[in-house]
């Protein structure tokens, strides 16, 4: 239902982080404040700390 059921390859660290940064830049240029940017930077760093393997 939520798209979380499907099996797939392990999430590779760093890929989402890069995409997230690009998406933010593309979609929110001129709208993000310092706090938002800090949040996104933190998000990217957090995602690099773990690898998830779905079972």
């Amino acid at each position: 239902m939520l798209g979380i059921d499907s099996k797939e390859l392990p999430v590779v660290k760093g890929r989402y982080a890069t995409n997230a940064r690009k998406a933010v830049k593309r979609a929110h240029t001129g709208q993000l404040n310092a706090s938002d940017k800090k949040t996104m930077t933190r998000s990217a760093k957090i995602l690099e700390e773990f690898v998830v393997v779905k079972e």
């Binding site: 059921d5 660290k13 760093g14 690099e48 700390e49 773990f50 690898v51 998830v52 393997v53």
Partner: peptide, 16 residues
């Protein structure tokens, strides 16, 4: 293949 940090921790997520 992207580089992986040696400190990266491995988690598994299961639906139950």
């Amino acid at each position: 293949m992207e580089k992986q940090n040696l400190n990266t921790r491995k988690l598994t997520i299961e639906k139950t």
